[in-house]
Design a protein around this nucleic acid. Structure first.
Lengths: 198, 198, 198, 198
DNA sequence: ACCGTCGGGACTACCCGTTCCT
DNA sequence: AGGAACGGGTAGTCCCGACGGT
């Protein structure tokens, strides 16, 4: 029982890393098997629905893990703008550490495979939904009016996601920093405007 | 002579559409050949460097075409904020018309293949660079201070790119509209702040 | 277990026959697959190193089999010259039965592919080495002096190999017979000279 | 007209070298075109029957050239045995100079393609026939009885051809030398025996 | 329950020799 | 002469099933 969990988890973690770096179609199951050291016959035992199921679980897992890290950083920040800046630094560090290969663990798979497969689509949607829910809640705590929080959260996440894309293309994390900075200002303004008005 | 241009161009256009919708690795050359009606042997005559060359030229072409459409819409808008909103509508319409399959013609390929291939990387970089150059110039004309224009352009493009990703995942163009709206407000503020200060 | 040996062996045997008749480059894996009735996916399971590995094992196998037949014929001959003549008849019969398509199972592949691939080179070298070792031992038994046996074996094998080439070009087994006859005389002379001298 | 002849001849010479080194099927027309610097469209102007015609003419040409060199060396030798030894040295030098890639310019193509194509078959047959005719004539001059000359010539050519094969496989010219030496002895014996008997 | 061997094809990118039409 | 069209061919990799042995 322990072995099973172990093998299964190792496959998910390996697959998550590979899907994030290479995307869905460029990642072969053989590579996942080889790098995770898992036996070949086990794949369809643990993931009867095959590659799609593995991808869906991998995306959910790595997206969830990253969501937790993001939540922790945000919780540790003194205020909203500082939190947004910290998020930018988190992603910028990840890009640099991986040679601009690891941006968002969901985006590539989402663009490639979400349109064709419901499991994967649901996993991607779930990850982004969870991230946004957490962010929206935080924005509310920072003083952003409730009827603005969802829109601001969309903007913040969109901006960061887009900045990650541009940063990978430019091989330069500058855009992540500047975008995060501007989003932080905007969040500050949204919170301040609300307080003033109240 | 006419045939050459025709066949080669047809292949590029077909490939551009497929790469945009399915991504790089999910698009087989056979499919490009079949949908463009080109014979198999012609591919490596027109694109000796193979799939990578085809992808690079396709991305440059479709990115360039879209850049022209964007420039035209922006030029036709009465002011900056209206232009940003119009851009959002342009992408939202494209998403809807394609069943949320056609977002940015560059993003998927960039995330999948740019890290592994210099030609493709250069093409993606070139497209985004051209878009940003045009946008930066426009922002300057709208009154955004010159030392802010590049950063604002980065934010605008990032926001739109991220919104396109989220919209495809949600199968809902709402996020594109709200993000574009907020970016439009921000551009208005940047321009107004400058005028006041001057 | 039995299944594996069967499929793998069938592929090797089929490939050996085709490589012998058509050579390395003219023999496609599809043809091997079709004629052996094996699916493509099995090929790279049994031969992960691909065509080269298949060719190397095929050459070793068919060369080994033929070596056994040659050894048996030689062992059954009353003396050295008779054995050489019998070898000539063995090859002549093979040429005739195959319409001058099956000469040496190693030579064509050796000339085509041995220079470019170490596996294949080693296999060819091994087959000829084994043949020569057997022949040298026999020559010793027939009274050829030990310090002459290796050179005589080289001459005998060279003569037969060259005769097989000429016979295929002429579509006539005559040269095999006459060359084998002269080599038989020579072996007789070498043995007799030794006995006299002793 | 001069240019045409030039181009055509350059293609033949380049093709001859490549066919000798790589064989028929491993040599692509593109490579011949590229290395000969000939325009692509010219191939089917000069060789309407395509690759087969090019191969046939190449084999005939390189075989003829080599035949002339062999004849010259043989003519310069003081007697038969010395001539055979000289032939061995000629081939051994060629093997060494080419890293054991250039043996007989006919053999590889003959084994690969002669069975399937009449033009190529005829060219190979013609080259070997011419070589044998010259050799037979010489043997007669050296005192080998007329009714033995053809058989001895067959043996000599077979032995050398086989030795070239073995030498390429072993990456060692030793076998060429020892075989040529033994063939030289044999030729000496044939000539001496005849003189004695007369 | 879990793992390994093996079978099964469809599909990939790429290159071939050849011919048409200008 | 020559640029473009043509389609069938290459080796190799894909994801997936199935049966046998722990």
């Amino acid at each position: 029982m322990a072995r099973r969990t172990n093998t299964r988890q190792r496959m998910i973690d390996t697959a998550g890393r590979l899907f994030q770096r290479q995307g869905y179609h460029a990642t072969g199951l053989n590579q996942v098997l080889a790098e995770s050291g898992a036996p070949k016959g086990s794949l369809y035992f643990h993931f009867p629905a095959g590659k799609d199921q593995l991808a869906a679980e991998s995306v959910a897992r790595s997206g969830g893990k990253l969501g937790e890290r993001m939540a922790a950083m945000v919780a540790a920040a003194p205020d909203g703008p500082a939190a947004i800046v910290a998020l930018g630094e988190l992603f910028a560090a990840s890009l640099l550490a991986s040679g601009f290969r690891e941006g968002c663990p969901v985006a590539t798979v989402a663009l490639e495979a979400a349109a064709d497969n419901d499991q994967i689509h649901a996993a991607c949607d779930g990850v982004y939904g969870a991230w946004l829910a957490g962010l929206t809640e935080r924005l509310d705590g920072w003083g952003v009016p409730a009827d603005r929080a969802a829109a601001v959260a969309d903007l913040v996440l969109s901006g960061i996601q887009g900045a990650l894309l541009l940063a990978r293309v430019r091989k330069d994390t500058g855009v992540v920093t500047t975008v995060a900075g501007q989003l932080a200002d905007l969040v500050g303004r949204e919170a301040a405007g609300h307080e003033e008005a109240s």
